[in-house]
């Protein structure tokens, strides 16, 4: 600790007025909650890639079936069981239209005298798999999104009412939930599908019927947490109506958790649809979904493995992407929340 002072110029010791707000200057522009979350999400590489992949799959699921001239149910037995053939990939030995027959590689296209190329091959009825896979993805995604939407609507309404009104209403509603939650959802889904006319609507209803319970519990918990917080009480003392409190104060605060939960509902619904179709309770022929395609492919697994591989890959990529994006959203929207 030196006591040797340098000679300093006298003006160094001039008192200066420092504006103390200067010290508090905020260097970053102010961002709202969603902008901030978006910035955080963008830093998560896995989530960003998943989002791009999902957007890509959604687009191709919409336009894919129209990219060639085959309809999803155009049958042509003379062109059945063709392996994938994509002309620009063929030189690499992938998707070259060859298949292994009795241990030998055979150009199936030449054998069957087929001139045109089928990018993903054809099934046992000669239907174009490229068209069917994207048509199927379209239907799987549609089922998943609608089921998730129904889940959100019922779940938020039920949980919101239960939490917001509290007291006896909450008591009764929670007892009901407790019993419903005890019923394994697989059982309900299977029973419902046996009774209803098979089809997209039936699957959506069956999945949505059990899916909303989790959402309603989360929403109720959040509403209970927020409704007694000071900002809500303050608004209430100022004479805000119930609807104002719900829509202006509560909903914005629980929005994040609803979004996160929905992100995990969608892949669950995709899985359930595929699962039900696989065990034969889902869509009926000639409709296609990823589940029915996998089921068809499984029957031909030994001879035409691509028939299973392609829809299975699309399904798996969808599931992985949704889960990764869900994880990313959860971290971005609510860093403290765990699974």
């Amino acid at each position: 600790m030196t006591q040797q002072y340098d000679k300093l110029p006298p003006e160094a010791f001039k008192l200066v007025k420092v504006n103390s707000t200067h010290a508090e200057q905020i260097a970053r522009p102010s961002l709202n909650f969603w902008q901030d979350a978006w910035l955080r999400l963008r830093k998560n590489k896995a989530a960003v890639i998943s989002m791009i992949v999902l957007i890509f799959i959604v687009i191709i699921a919409l336009v894919g079936p129209h990219l060639n001239s085959y309809g999803y149910n155009d049958q042509n037995v003379s062109k059945a069981n063709l392996p994938p053939k994509i002309s620009w990939l063929a030189p690499l030995g992938i998707a070259d239209g060859y298949a292994e027959v009795a241990g030998k590689k055979v150009d199936v296209y030449a054998q069957k005298n087929v001139k045109e190329n089928y990018w993903f091959g054809t099934d046992s009825l000669g239907r174009d798999l490229f068209t069917r896979v994207w048509k199927g993805s379209q239907i799987s995604l549609l089922i998943a999104f609608v089921a998730a939407l129904v889940d959100v609507i019922i779940g938020v309404a039920y949980g919101g009412i239960s939490g917001y009104y509290g007291g006896k209403v909450d008591d009764i509603m929670q007892r009901i939930i407790e019993i419903l939650a005890g019923i394994p959802n697989l059982i309900i889904v299977i029973l419902m599908l046996m009774v209803m006319e098979p089809g997209i609507t039936a699957i959506i209803i069956a999945i949505a019927l059990t899916g909303w319970i989790g959402m309603s519990r989360i929403v109720r918990g959040q509403v209970l947490k927020f409704k007694n917080q000071e900002f809500v009480l303050a608004s209430r003392t100022l004479g805000a109506s119930n609807s104002r409190i719900i829509f202006k104060h509560l909903l914005p605060n629980i929005m994040a958790i609803i979004v996160i939960n929905t992100m995990f509902t969608v892949p669950t619904a995709i899985f359930f649809e595929a699962f039900l179709s696989f065990i034969g309770l889902g869509l009926q022929a000639p409709n296609a979904s990823l589940g029915t395609l996998i089921n068809d492919g499984y029957k031909m697994l030994q001879f035409q493995p691509y028939m299973l591989g392609i829809p299975a890959a699309v399904l798996s990529i969808l599931m992985i992407a949704f889960n990764l994006l869900g994880d990313g959203l959860r971290d971005a929207l609510d860093p403290k929340m765990k699974d």
């Binding site: 899985f271 696989f278 996998i294 499984y298 399904l315 798996s316 599931m319 992985i320 889960n323």
Partner: peptide, 10 residues
Amino acid sequence: IFGLSIPSFV
């Protein structure tokens, strides 16, 4: 993530 995403039947 793979285990969670890839359905058991696949």
